[in-house]
Design a protein around this nucleic acid. Structure first.
Length: 751
DNA sequence: CTAGGGTTAG
């Protein structure tokens, strides 16, 4: 204790008690924040009445101030009042910190084990944990078990598991708390096997030990284990407390199993609510009801809590509505929750709620609102925020917004983990920037997971890089990652898109347990290269019932190969499985159109009308200057609609002049008069292209996105623009990407 | 008098 000075100071028992009390109350703060609290008159009144101070003469004349603290204040040369002291301490350099520490020793650190432990615990909890260790090492002979325990949990907290184990191993007098600290520490690092070993070896357990193990399982996603352990706890005769309930309920919630939830409620006797429980339990219950599909019961608890709501309660309820797809109710809660209660999770819940319910534009908009400097306090977005908003950018192909988010991440030094980088790869892939996607994958991210590989493979597949996708598959295997069904779907799609029959079949045969989707991909691949008979055979040999996707792929292949005979059979199956899916009728109609059987095209249309099948709304969008412009067929709502249609007129003139057959009705040539009105409405993708032509400069990349197929005329239009304007145009169509450069499309997919 | 366990977002 050489650096701590030697002028030990006697100090009253009352003051030590006071310090200790404060240390307990403020254990999460640095302990030396407590000294100024002693300077305030409220605390000082009793302190100074306990007797005259000893120690260095104080130049301060304020008699209500605790003299020892005052003398320190003078020694560091700052002002003499408590608040400036506090300010100084908050920005304390290590030199000043050491002086404060020295002073604490004078206050009695060396003669009061409990005070010393309180100080140590403060250091252990608030850091630097090394300072706690220094105190720990100073008086080996006076150590109490609590000192060891404080050190051990401090080490776990700051990520020094090895040191925690070292202390545990050398500790002479372990108690329940020590063992429990080890269980909790291992569990927090995700090492549940070790946690369980400590748990099993404990000589004695109490409720807290059980809870530590239980929460460990629950927080690491091992919900079945948690529920099993809860049973074990009951049969060992331990009464669960509120903490137990929270862990069990949250595990049950994660399972999302309504009947399991019901039986738990039954077992806990919560059929009539849970009046005795604290609001942690109630919030967990709310969440469980929400995740198990009883939104009404969740709302009931939310309403009952009224005055006892925490931020978490609000967030759980908002999340409940998002899960239901009720974004209006979710947003209503988000807007009505008290502003100071809103935290990062609230924003993330709402943003990801939009992103996951197909409202990507709103997700991006809300993120811009979150980061706008003019509203209230700035809440720093975290990786979850970034992942959600990048995913939204990817779904829309919103490159400008995507870039803006990337800059935001760099400017604000937001740390990204694997999932953050994965969403970056996704965003770049969907924006047609495969070079950037590769750069993130190979150069920027350190550790990768299966999702990283899957995301890049799927991206490569969508862009027609079949060989590269295959190469990545062997690379991931070589590095010990096990491909899953997503990987194989991506790989088969890649082969299909690149026409790699042999390779695709090899991969397909290597799949141990192929799923329906894999069969669908394989049918697609066989069909595209013209092996329709083999595709048919494969469908017949399937070990499971083919779903609509399988017949859909087959029908699409029949269209490409113009095989009406085979197609009609597949269509019949398809209509049996999905009688109300408009896409199937369109596929059949396109099959007839491909061989010029316009009468049958008309007949299919009639059939749709008879059955009342509504066409899904196709939409396209273009991003310009950070705004997303969305279009639907015949859209005249855009603020620059007149100009857009002017561009459209010019475009069609140009197309005719260039020798393209332009049919205003977009594809359906022999339609009846009554259908004419609907079909002459301009397709959304053409409106998007015209808007892009209107606003952007020559040479820019235009991203046109839609969720259905681009019609032949629009295809021609895009080709022409890319040729005449020398633009690169990227179109995402049916989740495939088409790069048009100088009038040519890089892929072998046909319209 | 001291040390161990809690709900929400991807």
């Amino acid at each position: 204790m050489s650096h701590l000075g030697n002028g030990a100071l006697t100090i009253s028992h009352k003051k030590i008690a006071q310090l200790r009390h404060l240390a307990r109350l403020h254990a999460h703060h640095r302990w030396f924040y407590l000294l100024p609290a002693l300077c305030t008159s409220r605390h000082a009144a009793s302190a100074s009445s306990s007797g005259p101070p000893h120690g260095p003469a104080s130049p301060s004349s304020a008699s209500t101030r605790a003299p020892t603290a005052t003398s320190f204040t003078c020694s560091v040369g700052s002002g003499s009042d408590a608040s400036s002291y506090l300010t100084l301490m908050k920005s304390a350099s290590s030199r000043v910190g050491t002086q404060v520490h020295a002073h604490a020793v004078k206050l009695g650190l060396d003669r009061d084990a409990y005070l010393r432990n309180a100080v140590m615990t403060s250091y252990a909890k608030a850091g630097p944990v090394g300072d706690a260790r220094r105190i720990f090492d100073e008086m080996p002979e006076k150590r109490i078990p609590a000192d060891w325990n404080s050190m051990i949990s401090g080490y776990w907290k700051w990520g020094f598991g090895e040191r925690a184990r070292e202390l545990f191993d050398t500790m002479p007098c372990r108690n329940v708390i020590t063992w429990t600290a080890m269980v909790a520490g291992c569990a927090k690092t995700g090492d549940l096997d070790s946690a369980r070993k400590y748990f099993d070896k404990m000589p004695r357990r109490n409720v807290v030990s059980w809870n530590a193990m239980l929460s460990g399982y629950a927080q690491n996603g091992l919900h079945d284990e948690a529920l099993k352990l809860f049973d074990g706890m009951a049969s060992s005769g331990f009464q669960p407390d509120d903490t137990t309930l929270v862990a069990v309920i949250s595990s049950c919630a994660a399972r999302g199993d309504a009947s399991l939830a019901a039986s738990l409620i039954e077992r806990l006797g919560f059929n009539q609510g849970c009046p005795g429980s604290n609001f942690f339990v109630k919030t967990a219950l709310l969440d469980m009801y929400a995740k198990c599909g009883s939104i009404a019961k969740a709302r009931q608890i939310f309403d009952e809590l009224r005055d006892g709501r925490s931020t978490v309660t609000w967030n759980a309820m908002i999340s409940a509505y998002c899960k239901e797809g009720d974004l209006v109710s979710a947003r209503e809660l988000f807007d009505t929750m008290p502003l100071p209660e809103r935290d990062v999770v609230s924003w993330n819940t709402m943003i990801s709620g939009y992103a996951q319910n197909g409202q990507s534009a709103l997700a991006i908009q809300l993120f811009r609102q979150m980061t706008a400097s003019n509203v209230g306090v700035f809440l720093k977005p975290n990786e979850v925020t970034i992942s959600s908003v990048l995913s939204a950018c990817g779904h829309l192909g919103a490159m400008e917004s995507g870039n803006w988010v990337v800059n935001f991440v760099n400017d604000n030094r937001i740390e990204l983990g694997i999932s953050g980088y994965n969403s970056l790869i996704f965003m770049y892939s969907r924006c047609g920037r495969m070079d950037d996607a590769r750069r993130v994958f190979y150069k920027e991210m350190g550790t990768k997971d299966v999702v990283s590989y899957n995301t890049l493979i799927t991206g490569l597949a969508a862009h027609g890089h079949g060989w590269e996708a295959l190469q990545l598959l062997s690379e991931m295997k070589a590095r010990g990652f096990k491909p899953n069904h997503v990987t194989y779907t991506g790989i088969l799609t890649a082969c299909s898109h690149a026409g790699l029959l042999r390779e695709g079949r090899e991969v397909f045969e290597s799949i141990r347990d192929p799923m329906v989707d894999h069969y669908a991909c394989m049918v697609d691949l066989l069909g595209r290269v013209g092996e329709l008979e083999r595709a048919e055979l494969l469908i017949q040999k399937m070990p499971m019932e083919p779903h609509a996707g399988v017949y859909g792929s087959f029908l699409n292949a029949c269209r490409i190969q113009r095989r009406v005979d085979l197609g009609e059979t597949a269509a019949r199956k398809l209509f049996e499985l999905e009688p109300n899916h408009s896409g199937n009728y369109v596929l059949l109609s396109n099959l007839y159109a491909s061989v010029g059987r316009w009468g049958d095209v008309h007949r299919v249309r009639e059939l749709m009308r008879e059955k009342g099948v509504k066409k899904a709304t196709a939409w396209s969008c273009v991003e310009h200057k950070g705004r997303i412009h969305e279009f639907v067929m015949g859209d005249r709502y855009h603020e620059r609609s007149d100009e857009i249609y002017e561009v459209l007129g010019k475009l069609e003139t140009r197309m005719r002049r260039a020798g393209y057959m332009v049919d205003e009705s977009c594809a359906l040539r022999d339609v009846g008069e009554e259908e004419k009105e609907e079909s002459v409405r301009v397709h959304s993708e053409r409106l998007a292209i015209c808007y892009a032509l209107l606003v952007s400069e020559v040479g820019t990349v235009i991203q046109v996105v839609k969720n259905l197929r681009v019609c032949p005329d629009c295809h021609a239009a895009i080709k022409l623009i890319s040729k005449l304007e020398r633009r690169k145009i990227i179109v995402r169509d049916n989740n495939r990407f088409h790069h048009f450069v100088e009038g040519k499309c890089s892929c072998n997919d046909h319209w």
